[in-house]
Each structure stands twice: as C-alpha cells, then as structure tokens.
Simulated scan of single mutants.
Amino acid sequence: MTSHPQQDVCCLMGDPIAGNPTQYMLEKAFAAAQLDWRFLTFEVPSINFEGALRGARIFCFDGVMLAPPHRSQVMPYLEKVGDAARISGQVNCIKQVGGQLTGYNTEGRALRQLLEQAGAVNNAKVTILGAGRLARAIGAELALAGAGEIVFACRRPAAGQELQKTLLEQTPLTQCHIETITTECPLTLDEDCQAIVNATPASEPLPVVIDSLPRRAVVADVVYNPPTTWLMRQAEECDCPTIDGLTLLIEQAALAFEIWTGVSADRQAMRDAVEEFLIL
C-alpha cells in the first residue's frame, strides 16, 4: 500500500541514538500489517537538525519520530502542532501530508490511554515524579483529558513551578501542586492519590515512602530497560495495578504508527520485537 509512487518511509532522528529499539520495532509492525513501508534511523546532532528535517520534507517521508534533544527544538519548523505537544513543548512524532508537517506527542497520550483503561484519569488525583520533558508531556495530556488534580514531586521546584503555571493557564486543570523531594525528605503520597507516575530516568530506589502508596492506585514507570524497576517491584508487592515502561514504549510507538498509516498496530508483534532487541 503506497500513497505516492515512491517508497513509503518513516525515520527516527536523535543524538545519541545507539541502542534505540524503535527501528526494529516499527519494521516488525509494518511487516505484521503487510505494509510495504520502511523505517530508517539517523543520528542527527542539534546543529544539523534543521537540515535533516528539511531533507525529510523534501524526500516526502511519511513520518518522523524524534528522540532527544530534538523534541523541544522542532516547533518552529512545523505547520501544525497538537494541543498536548504545544502546551508541553515536546514533539516526538511528526506526520507529513502534502508537504505540511504536523507535530504530536504520543508519549503522554499513550500513558493517558493506559490510565483511562484503569479508570485513573477523569477527575483523578495523579502524582508525577519529575518535572522534565516526560513529566511535561504526561502532565499536559492528563490535564487536557480531565484530571482533577496533578502533583509534581521533583528535586528542583523551579522547574515544577514553571510547568504548574503553564498547565493552569493553558488547560482546564484547576488544581496543580508542587512537592519538593530529596533522599532525606521522601514523598509521602496522599490517600486519595489514584495514580503515581515515575517520569524520571531513575530505575532504582526513588524518594517515595512506599508504605504510603494507596493500595488501589495505578503505578506507572517510564523506564523501559529494565522494565521491572524498583517502583514496579514495590507496586506489585502492594498488589497495585502497574504500567511498566516497556508497555509505554510500545504504546507510544503504536500510536505513531497509526497516525502515519491509518492502520491498527499489532502491539504484540511490537512487544516481541522489543524484547528480542533488548534481550529481555
């Protein structure tokens, strides 16, 4: 299935890019859907990013996935941007149609959809560990989707306060708070917290009082390698429902696949590919 005479092609741009499983996962997804599409990976330093994106436009690439540091740099080069991507300042997925580039953030959307399946978004109180790029993407998506209250627990309160101001001004969210956490002063979760999300790259002990974890709270972690992080182990011991980083990685890539192709992604094929690539 092709939309034009040349090969349908998507790509990943980032720096560094070594060890990223996206190409292998999406090639398997194209094959599972019987699509004659190809996926390429390019290591693109920031200084060359504008030119690389111009090349993708000229060569009519159907889609582009962005890895750091380009997710926050791409906005000036896009014709359209989805609401969550605009508010968070984070674009990880681009679709090209007729020479026009539209930017999306599928990371926040992936987590939002998985949390919705557990009933932990609408009017829910959500605690997010971190205030960096993933916290921004997740916070923006949940705020737009109707979360009742979002708490950002982070080591640098200034970053959280800027994010708090953005969400309160640009989304329907009316309750957003910042908690400063350190190893010496860990986070104690409120009893009415319905979801906790680790949006930091830390996979080992986090500054959280696990005994305060509400037993029915959904616990999610963005770290996908290893997928069984300290937080996931603690949550499972408390019999809390969990969403691991591997599931999130697959879901955000599946959403990009569906944006580009209009075809449902085979998530099991994608999971098998990632587990094979990462030797899990």
Rank of each mutant, 00 (worst) to 15 (best):
M1G: 11
Q7Y: 00
V9L: 14
M13T: 10
A18Q: 11
Y24Q: 14
Y24W: 09
Y24F: 11
Y24C: 06
Y24P: 06
A31R: 12
A31Y: 07
A33K: 09
Q34C: 12
Q34T: 13
F39N: 13
F42A: 11
I47L: 14
E50P: 07
G51A: 15
G51K: 12
L53C: 12
R57K: 14
I58R: 13
C60N: 14
D62L: 12
L66V: 07
P68L: 14
H70N: 08
Q73S: 15
Y77V: 00
E79D: 15
Q90Y: 07
Q90I: 15
C93N: 13
C93H: 07
Q100T: 10
L101M: 15
Y104F: 15
G108W: 03
R109T: 12
L115V: 07
N122K: 15
A124P: 04
G130S: 11
A137K: 00
E141A: 08
L142V: 04
L144I: 05
G146I: 03
A153H: 00
R155I: 01
P157Y: 00
A159S: 11
L167G: 06
L167R: 04
T171C: 06
P172E: 03
H177V: 02
I178H: 03
I178D: 08
T180K: 13
T183D: 02
L187Q: 01
D192S: 12
C193R: 02
T200R: 04
A202P: 00
E204C: 07
V209T: 05
V209P: 00
I210F: 04
D211K: 08
S212A: 02
R215Y: 07
R216D: 12
D221W: 00
V222M: 10
P227I: 03
L231P: 11
E237D: 11
C240Y: 01
I243C: 08
I243Q: 10
I243D: 09
D244L: 09
T247Y: 01
I250W: 02
Q252F: 05
A254P: 01
A254Y: 03
A256Y: 01
E258S: 08
I259G: 02
W260T: 12
W260D: 10
G262S: 01
D266T: 09
V274N: 09
L278G: 06
